[in-house]
Write a protein that binds this DNA or RNA. Structure first.
Length: 639
RNA sequence: GCCAGCGUAGCUCAGUCGGUAGAGCAACUGAUUCGUAAUCAGUAGGUCGGAGGUUCGACUCCUCUCGCUGGCUCCA
């Protein structure tokens, strides 16, 4: 009997041995047909032939798995094109990544932007030739010999490192690559792709290793998906906080000032003030007290904290009166010093101390990026000192506070991570267990789903990280809640327990928004510069139609400002259309047009940013509605 | 820090072969007093990121340096 039993998508079928999946693939369903299959868990392409009983599930092109395979195959196509055009180039690795794929190359001279165009063109030609992509299983020795003969040292190295005595390779036309697969059956299936960029990359990610050239590209099954992806990139460019920051006059950088140092302009400052006020209010309500600490401290402080030892982003020391000082890269030691300024009783705990502390780190020049990665930034920091029995509740409190604040800013999707003890760590293992459990229990009781990053904790304690998803589904690290066994030990903090003896408190280190600067950057991009009313740097602009309406406009303006609203009058001698255009481009939420009618009736005619004219309404009614929106921190703007 | 690209007016950009710099918008001044996304005219604005070099002459070529961008690495 040559038949084997097959379970396809749960129902059983029997086919004869040697049948390929392409012979039994179902017809078009919902406009698509399977492109790959999973056989007993392993992904195979449709050329795979049936030899044994197995369970088969089809993989459709709208799945992430299918996309990853396509991307991987496109990376091969890229390599084929590059080797075609630039003989002597060596290939490194070429995987699928989040939004596409890349391939690393070792080449004497770097690729130029022009080269990328040529490469993409060659890829299209190769795709059109529709080469079969075939798997070949070689003895390891044979593969090593082959790559050596081709002078592909990097591949040889990769094969060498692989265990076992067989290696799989994929061949398409004159191109062969060491690869575990799977791949699309032929290059003709690769159609909707684009080469995106070229950059440097280290061989095996080692900074001291060879410098390779990495070419990035992206590919999709359909033209629409590709276009959609490219449109998303365009949208991200339009929303770029660096661009909007300049256009809306929020902040700037200055070459003479230094890299990664921010100048907050009045309008950026206005938003920051609102964020900070909100932040402080929420912290007071949550039982925090506020601390302030200096920007520099004697080097000894940082030696004791271990920062000089473990932290390589410190600025060089400053010397004054023959004593060395250091700009603070973190606030923690100061808070601990406050803790140690007197004896603490178990009754004093928990202590929750918050500070908007500006820290300075000499981040490497290549990593700086707008407001997102800078050298001087303000952590919305706090340290909680508590007893073991208070730990879980304190963690819960911190997580709840974080979520409620982030939700107020309009973020509703979170990715939560729990990082546990790494190989190298300080503190005693029991405390790690207690603390990790407390973090986990806290997350569960708050009802948050989380992913456990085993062994990914920092050396001084386990932690929870919360990332937010913005309007473009990009994720940003904000909240972190970390236990710190290192500083607790180094600064020898303790409290007097009920038993009269000394005990070490748990020290929780947490930031909710992360850094005010970065959070501001994220907000700008999330809102596309259209801040909700409560945050908008300018909430109202009053536009008099003619000069004779200026007095009325000024009176309104004074009234609004007195009420705590951020309002302006545009007294420019321009037509109303011009002033409206200006206000719209500044993304000011409420535009009030005042002319003869409004002066006479004591009304305003609001025009809402991006929505339009709302008609006339009494000033009183307008103010009530505005107060309401601001008070509720409404994310939606309409009157 | 590494690889690559870039740096001209506040912003966006042009500037040929090396011959000493231009536009639009913004700003300012004047006229216009106007009802929901650009009124007209005029004026001013530049050490061409900085330093050095080559050259009779450098925005242009070379070196160094500062800054920015995309990645890599980093972010205890």
């Amino acid at each position: 009997m040559n038949d084997v039993k097959f379970s396809i998508e749960g129902s059983s079928v029997s086919v004869s041995k040697g049948t390929s999946l392409s012979q039994i693939v179902p017809d078009v369903k919902n406009g698509t047909r399977p492109v790959f299959a999973r056989v007993d868990g392993a992904i195979v392409d449709l050329d795979w032939t049936v030899e044994d009983d197995a369970r088969v599930d089809w993989i459709y092109p709208d799945s992430q798995e299918a996309l990853d395979i396509l991307r991987h195959s496109t990376a091969h196509l890229l390599a084929q094109a590059v080797l075609d055009l630039f003989p002597g180039t060596q290939t490194g690795v070429g995987p699928a990544v989040e939004n596409g794929f890349y391939y690393d190359f070792l080449k004497d001279t770097p690729f130029t932007p022009d080269d990328l165009g040529l490469i993409e063109k060659r890829m299209r030609e190769l795709a059109e030739e529709d080469f079969q992509i075939n798997k070949e299983t070689l003895d390891k020795d044979a593969a090593l010999r082959m790559f050596r003969e081709m002078n592909h040292d990097l591949k040889e190295e990769l094969v060498q490192e692989k265990g076992g005595d067989k290696v799989s390779c994929y061949r398409q036309g004159n191109f062969i690559d060491f690869c575990r697969g799977p791949h699309v059956p032929s290059t003709g299936l690769i159609r909707h792709f684009k080469i995106v960029s070229v950059s440097g990359a280290y061989w095996k990610g080692e900074e001291k290793g060879k410098q390779l050239q990495r070419i990035y590209g992206t590919v999709f099954f359909s033209r629409e998906d590709l276009d959609h992806h490219l449109e998303l990139i365009e949208e991200a460019k339009r929303r770029d906080h660096r661009k909007l920051g300049t256009e809306l006059d929020l902040f700037s950088f200055h070459e003479d000032l230094g890299a990664g140092l921010i100048l907050w302009h009045p309008k950026g400052g206005a938003v920051r003030r609102v964020i900070e006020d909100f932040w402080r209010d929420e912290h007071f309500k949550a039982g925090y007290d506020l601390l302030f600490s200096p920007h520099i401290a004697k080097l000894d402080v940082w030696k004791r904290s271990g920062h000089t030892e473990f932290y390589d982003a410190m600025y060089p020391t400053l010397e004054s009166d023959e004593v060395e000082y250091e700009l603070k890269p973190m606030n923690c030691p100061f808070h601990i010093m406050v803790y140690n300024s007197r004896q603490r009783s178990y009754r004093d705990l928990p202590l929750r101390w918050a500070e908007l502390g500006t820290v300075y780190r000499h981040e490497r020049s290549g990593v700086l990026h707008g407001l997102m990665r800078v050298r001087g930034f303000t952590q919305d920091d706090a340290h909680i000192f508590c007893r073991p029995d208070q730990l879980e509740k304190e963690i819960q409190g911190a997580v709840r506070l974080a979520l409620s604040m982030l939700k107020t800013f309009g973020f509703s999707e979170f990715d939560v991570y729990l990082s546990t003890r790494p190989e190298k760590y300080v503190g005693n293992p029991e405390d790690w267990v207690t603390a990790t459990k407390a973090l986990e229990d806290a997350l569960r009781s708050v009802g948050l789903e989380f992913r456990e990053d085993i062994g990914e904790g920092v050396f001084y304690g386990p932690k929870i990280d919360i990332k937010i998803r913005d309007a473009l589904q990009r994720s940003w690290q904000c909240t972190t809640v970390q236990l710190d066994f290192n500083l607790a030990e180094r600064f020898n903090i303790h409290y007097v327990g009920e038993d009269g003896g000394n005990h070490r408190p748990f020290m929780i280190h947490r930031a909710l928004l992360g850094s005010l600067e970065r959070f501001f950057g994220v907000l700008i991009e999330h809102y596309n510069g259209n801040f909700p009313l409560w945050l908008a740097p300018v909430q109202i602009v009053i536009l008099p139609i003619a000069d004779r309406h200026n007095d009325y406009a000024d009176r309104l303006n004074a009234r609004f400002i007195e009420r705590g609203l951020r309002s302006q009058v545009d007294r420019k001698r321009e037509k109303i259309g011009y002033k409206i255009r200006h206000a719209e481009m500044q993304k000011i939420p409420l535009i009030l047009i005042v002319g003869d009618k409004e002066v006479q009736d004591e009304t305003v005619s609001p025009r809402i940013h991006t929505i339009g004219d709302k008609g006339q309404m009494p000033v009183k009614e307008f103010l009530e509605k505005v107060d309401n929106l601001v008070e509720n921190k409404s994310l939606v703007l309409d009157l």
